[in-house]
């Protein structure tokens, strides 16, 4: 009579095992088959504005230095709604600074200041609705990093050139305290003050000179950050002159 419990046990085991391999019914149907929409192309980073110009182009401005007997042009970029950044030598000996954007809009300058620490100047403008402003990178670019420079070479059209960082060097012009960066990007007079962008579009430096072998020198963003943090290093520039020779040039 021990057979009965054994059979019952075997039957139960078979039942449990069998239930495990039995197919189950379908799960409930979803109410919506449409997945969540991805970001629209216009919302993606780096997208161009409706007028076809990139954020980097929109933040880059052309400066005209109406100087004491000369007219020079250079480049700068919008840091915030009232601040532009350019080179000190772009605004040197000026009696008036005129600023225009990529689409020809004129910005009215209110004050200019510069520093002897680096070839950097700050131009204050009347607050206006600006379509784009620069984002400063947290760190200087490393050797071999790809960079892009946007500016107005020879006072001409807004132009973009690319290159790589060749390394840090002492400033051959002695216009900066500390080291500057050498890049392979080719610049021209008039490119001075151009923003140097990394692959993310953040500013990693400011162009201030070209070398004899068509390389460019840039003030690294770390120096720029120091100057923006230490406003005491910036000295206001007086926009006056009393000479009267006239010539035209680009910085």
């Amino acid at each position: 009579m021990r057979l009965l419990p054994s059979l019952a046990l075997a039957a139960s085991a078979l039942l449990v095992t069998g239930c495990g391999v039995l197919p189950s019914g379908p799960s409930p149907m979803p109410s919506d088959w449409v997945p969540t929409a991805s970001a629209s192309p216009a919302a993606r980073a780096g997208a161009v504005s409706p007028d076809g110009f990139s954020a980097a182009q929109r933040m880059t401005v052309r400066l005209r230095n109406i100087g004491c007997g000369f007219i020079a042009t250079g480049t700068g970029f919008i840091y915030d709604s009232t601040t532009l950044i350019t080179n000190r030598h772009v605004i040197d000996n000026s009696r008036q600074i005129q600023v225009s954007t990529y689409n020809g809009t004129s910005l009215t300058t209110t004050a200019v200041s510069s520093t002897t620490v680096a070839d950097i100047a700050i131009v204050r403008i009347e607050e206006s609705v600006l379509s784009s402003a620069a984002t400063l990178a947290q760190e200087d670019p490393a050797e071999g990093d790809v960079i892009t420079i946007i500016g107005y070479p020879n006072g001409g059209e807004l132009t973009t050139v690319s290159g790589v960082v060749l390394g840090a060097t002492a400033d051959p012009l002695d216009s900066s305290v500390g080291q500057v960066l050498l890049t392979s990007a080719e610049v021209e007079p008039g490119s001075s003050g151009s923003p140097v962008l990394n692959e993310s579009g953040a500013v990693v430096g400011v162009v201030y000179a070209k070398t004899d072998d068509d390389r460019s020198l840039i003030v690294p963003v770390s120096t720029l950050r120091t100057l923006l943090d230490e406003t005491s290093l910036l000295v206001p520039e007086a926009l006056t002159c009393d000479t009267s020779t006239t010539h035209s040039s680009t910085s």
């Binding site: 052309r62 005209r64 109406i66 007997g69 007219i71 042009t73 005129q98 225009s100 990529y102 689409n103 020809g104 107005y152 006072g155 001409g156 059209e157 807004l158 006239t246 035209s248």
Partner: peptide, 19 residues
């Protein structure tokens, strides 16, 4: 860009010639 460039150059010339 061409127009803005022309305008900028015209501005440069105007300023230069005015001076």
């Amino acid at each position: 860009s061409d127009v803005v460039n022309d305008e900028a150059h015209a501005g440069d010339d105007l300023q230069y010639l005015g001076d």
